[in-house]
Amino acid sequence: MGKQAIERIVEKYGSDHADVLEMLIDIQEKEHYLSRETLQYLSERLAVPLTRLYHMATFYEALSLKRRGRHQIHVCMGTACHVRGAARILEQLERCLSIKSGEVTPDLQFGLATVNCVGTCALGPVVSVDGEYHGHMSASKVERMLKRYSETEANGVAVCQK
């Protein structure tokens, strides 16, 4: 992210270092990750030690040092979802997107990760995309779900490359 874009976010919070977590969340939403340069710039700009920013960036689930997809998919691997076949759903997602859990597609459209119980076990197995929950998932529903979010599908590019 360019200095100016960061600067706009910093100024939105009145350059107050007490709001640095909000700033990080805003940057994460725009960039889908926090780059080292971003953290270093913020550290100098707000006189907040880099250690503290690094701590936050690695502590909160909402923040990430690794690039995430524009659409972030979370597959619940909690016990309830696991026994109902979450592993097969994850496999199908990995196959469709040709990435492993923890990675992003080369066009940065989709990111894939696992979580442990999102608290809606009755709906399991659960997959969330951009915070939207898809309950009662199955491997065969994966493709349709991906198409709903796909930006390239409209151009006739299929998501699944089986």
Binding site: L39, P49, L50, T51, R52, L53, Y54, H55, T58, F59
Partner: peptide
Amino acid sequence: EAITFSGRGERRKVEPP
């Protein structure tokens, strides 16, 4: 301010940025 905790839960550890 040279070192910090990073991560959380079982991944928590002490390290430099």
